[in-house]
């Protein structure tokens, strides 16, 4: 359960930027969370609510967290096929070679925020 720590990092990033723009309140934060990022969207939402309820920092009372999931995708370097990786994620479903490289699903970013 490292989502509390991750949410702390997210809020630090956003608040630092907001302060540099003389903004006082954060109304919304949008994240991109990859399926292979090891961050759980549900736990991130819970952590966001905990921070909001504490009333510390710049989150407004009705602040929202929007999470965009990024699906895991892999591409086989042997045959070029693109696929959604299963549990042996580097095995290509088409040619069965262990040549799959992850091309999406590892992103974990703050995309944007709304402040006033």
């Amino acid at each position: 359960m490292h989502e509390m720590a991750l949410m702390g990092d997210i809020l630090r990033l956003v608040e630092e930027d907001a302060r540099s723009r003389n903004l006082r309140q954060i109304k919304q934060i949008e994240l991109i969370v990859g399926d292979l990022s090891n961050a759980m969207p549900d736990a991130l939402e819970m952590a966001f609510d905990v921070f909001k309820a504490r009333g510390l920092g710049m989150l407004s009372e009705n602040a929202r967290l929007v999470i965009h999931r990024e699906e895991a995708r892999a591409k086989c370097v042997v045959c070029g096929c693109e696929y959604t990786p299963g549990h042996r994620l580097s095995i290509c479903p088409d040619c069965s070679m262990p040549g799959g490289k992850i091309i999406a699903g590892e992103t974990f970013k703050v995309q944007s925020y709304e402040g006033s």
Binding site: L13, V14, L23, L31, F108, K109, V110, Q111, S112, E114
Partner: peptide, 14 residues
């Protein structure tokens, strides 16, 4: 106002 931050969450750690 909406700000496009496009920042890695783990950028401080990195």
């Amino acid at each position: 106002m909406k700000i496009n931050l496009d920042a890695e969450v783990l950028s401080d750690n990195n």
